[in-house]
Design a protein around this nucleic acid. Structure first.
Lengths: 364, 364
DNA sequence: TAGTTTTGCGCAAACCATTGCGCTAGCTAA
DNA sequence: TTAGCTAGCGCAATGGTTTGCGCAAAACTA
């Protein structure tokens, strides 16, 4: 028998379709073709029924019912790879994060994952480990995988590696950090206002020599926080002391090391403004080793409010960033682009920070 | 049967490929075919050159050079969708996590992301939000996307939803939690020993009425910690008081509520064993509201050591879990299966916990 | 000159879902 | 009788990559 393709024996089959009863339920993979063969209809018909186009293609009710029944029985699900290939659409977004174990970014990721899921999208996660090279690699990777959109907390200080993606019209949203030279949809917190408020609060409490523990220089959050710090000093006619502005990264190490160095050099510092929760944790460690008490010996305010902040030895005054909302807005900005690609994407959105006053600042 | 094999309309393209000269460099997408056309070689040749099989297919050096040059010039990268479709291999693993914003899981995820990247794999992240329904959905999704492997921190107390995947021979590794009824490769910490050690430590410090703030009942970490707690009591000939065993989830809420209730009912409790860092944070909140001081009024030990633990109002004694190693081992177990699918996967691996003594336990 | 080996590469199927186009049977209206 | 229409569906191309099989030409041998 060469061709055993049955010649259109349509529903000549006995009223009870005995074919169905053979035990091949969900083993291996069910494909469109298998369903089509079983039912002696074409793959197109099956495809159309299963994607809800039965009506618009005037497929008979019987056929439709038979197909959807068998599909349910076989537990059919379309192969997303084939689908993506054909449709040029993967229902996937890439999420690039400098460090998923940092609770700040984890909070954002959580929210992005939520939102993506609600839109029926999956997310490909890349942890760039604060390494620009890894970030570039990751972006390439995500591109080969034809993600439909990209949410990035970029790590570098330049947007050079992003222009390709933009030119390819890949929807992108920047989270937390952005770049001057490449205006892209962006969501972050109002770092300038947050820093101003925190610094003002320290000044109002009588502090004059306020150290500033920076994060990654050149990154937008760092620059705006620094600007806020400076503006507040200036507004209050306080001199700016370059020796008090130290630090190089948002990590715990930087906080620890710079605090120790600072304390050696400048015993007169009365307050610290830490640009991240990890920096603050590092500072705490250093202060403990130097046997300095908060706030009696030194005051501190940290960016990022975390659940533990209230339970610290001295409950910490913090600048809370709405990371949950940041994630939400990021998703929104991204899907705005995905769903209507022609529109010019909006620019940046800054969410307000909130100064949460606890006990880590002493009134002098 | 009549031959309806189509009549071989081969490449009607002119001998000299004048096509070369048009300036389509890297716009839109470069495909194998485009390179092949430009060079007047077949797609197979291009494919073979680009996947390093030039030698074994005896492709001439000139051809090879020409192809790889043009590929570089066009910045060619193979379409991973097409590749996956053909190869039945997506270089992707699925990672299912109950809550990525929980630092414990974030730590694991970080390590898994790292390891996957080193193996050339990407990860699809699903946040199941501690919801078994969502977990099931996510697993389906990952399956449709034909992931090559799966790392799961499962949320429920039954493995029913996993048997399908196992039968489909999908490599799986369970992290942190596992199931009695379905022996799967697993990595977690030695919760039994950890709980025994912590409880012994409390007993050794003179505590007799030790409350136990549980996590999710039925989950393996919870059951083993509970067993450890009980065994320690029994070994020390202390009675077990069911009223002191409370709690229902690993979240902060559970810790808070159960602590408040407990304190109302039993003023005689002298120590608390909290089964997670979040539970401990909740307990801390409750204790603060009741104006109870640690360790003077009540002692506490918590599972999970976090960076902030040392800086709390009372530096907390904790049972550290090696989540970084857990992630590492998970990756190893998973890729063992992926790389040699025929082998019977190994069973579970328990990593030792470590009791980190700080100041939250008082000697009675 | 004929036969054999090697070199170098191409053809087309396979993977799977989607979709433009077009075919057929059956009915109606002209 | 036949053109025209519609309901109902199939064919085959499409997307990009990989790969088993096999062919043609060149080189070499007898």
């Amino acid at each position: 028998m060469q061709k055993n393709k049955p010649l259109r024996r349509k529903k000549t089959s006995p009223p009870v379709s005995g074919i169905l009863s053979n035990g091949e339920s969900s083993r291996s993979h069910t494909t469109l073709k298998r369903i089509a063969n079983q039912l002696n209809v074409s793959m197109s018909t099956v495809s159309r029924v299963l994607s809800g186009q039965a009506r618009s293609h005037r497929i008979s009710q019987q056929t439709e019912a038979a197909v959807s029944n068998l599909a349910r029985q076989f537990n059919f699900v379309p192969n997303q790879l084939a689908r993506g290939l054909r449709l040029k659409k993967t229902l996937t977004i890439g999420l690039v994060i400098p460090d998923i174990s940092n609770p700040f970014f984890a909070g954002i990721a959580h929210q992005v994952a939520l939102g993506a899921h609600q839109h029926g999208y999956s997310i490909l996660l890349c942890d760039s480990q604060e390494d620009i090279e890894l970030e570039i690699q990751s972006l390439g990777l995500l591109r080969h995988r034809h993600v439909d959109g990209l949410a990035i907390c970029p790590v570098g200080t330049s947007a050079k590696h992003l222009v390709d993606l933009v030119q390819a019209h890949l929807p992108i949203v920047l989270v937390d950090r952005y770049f001057q030279d490449l205006p892209l949809p962006y969501v972050g917190s109002d770092n300038l206002a947050g820093a101003v408020e925190a610094t003002n609060y320290l000044i109002a409490n009588g502090h004059r020599r306020i150290a500033c523990l920076q994060g990654l220089r050149g990154s937008s959050p760092n620059e705006f926080r620094l600007r806020g710090y400076r503006e507040a000093l200036a507004k209050n006619h306080l001199p700016e002391d370059p020796a008090l502005i130290v630090g190089y990264s948002f990590g715990e190490q930087s906080g620890y090391i710079e605090t120790r160095l600072l304390l050696r050099a400048r015993k007169d510092v009365t307050a610290i403004l830490a640009f991240s929760n990890l920096i603050a944790l590092g500072a705490l460690r250093a202060l403990a080793e130097e046997k300095l008490r908060i706030p009696d010996d030194i005051s501190i305010i940290a960016f990022d409010d975390q659940p533990y902040a209230a339970h610290l030895a001295t409950p910490m005054t913090t600048v809370a960033q709405p990371f949950s909302e940041m994630g939400e807005v990021a998703v929104k900005l991204l899907f705005d682009q995905i769903q209507s690609p022609q529109q010019q994407p909006k620019g940046g959105i800054l969410l307000p920070t909130q100064l949460i006053v606890r006990n880590s600042v002493k009134k002098l």
